[in-house]
Amino acid sequence: MAEQIKLLIVDDEVRFLDSIAHRLELRDFDVTKASSGTEAIKAAEGGGFDLALLDLKMPGMNGQEVLQILKRQHQFLEVIILTGHGSFDSAVECTKLGAFSYLSKPYELEKLLEVLKQAYEVRLKKKFLSDQQRIAQIEAISAQADPQTLVTQIRKQMAEKPTLLSILRELRKLDDERK
């Protein structure tokens, strides 16, 4: 993996938090730890996390609330629930709120790594689809607008979403190949 996956781990059990962070760092994840809901939301403010591992039962803000806030603030952040208090009801609830997966403690590392990989792929795919939509929008505008308007439009989109830049790069590459 060329790029390190940026992962936020939230758990009130500090020893558990330290160890899992350590293990995932060994497996090339870029890990940030948070021992409570508020800490997690603060850490995520700047954006840039690909995935989050979230405990449910925590003193103060509980996992479900944290999940809702994270999903609202970060469109492409995939959240995986990792809880000691697993139940069918809460799994359904969390999935409805947009959790990518629901694992219970103690977990199997292989399974967790598998889920993290899937989640990352899904995140990329979603982002890609989202970018495609934007391109389609731009194309629709460019079909009728003068070049000057088009450039302004693209600039605007790029300001909104820096990732668009990479997509444009890809597009240019494709264009070059075609030529």
């Binding site: 059990e13 020893r15 558990f16 160890s19 899992i20 350590h22 293990r23 060994l26 039962k57 000691g84 208090h85 139940s87 219970s104 403690k105 103690p106 977990y107 590392l109």
Partner: peptide, 24 residues
């Protein structure tokens, strides 16, 4: 029971974690 099972799950998760880490 539910509460207690969960309460046991937490130390178990820690044990699991530490054992895995040692292996690593």
């Amino acid at each position: 029971a539910a509460g207690i099972a969960h309460e046991i799950n937490n130390p178990l998760a820690v044990i699991n974690e530490e054992a895995g880490l040692i292996k690593d």
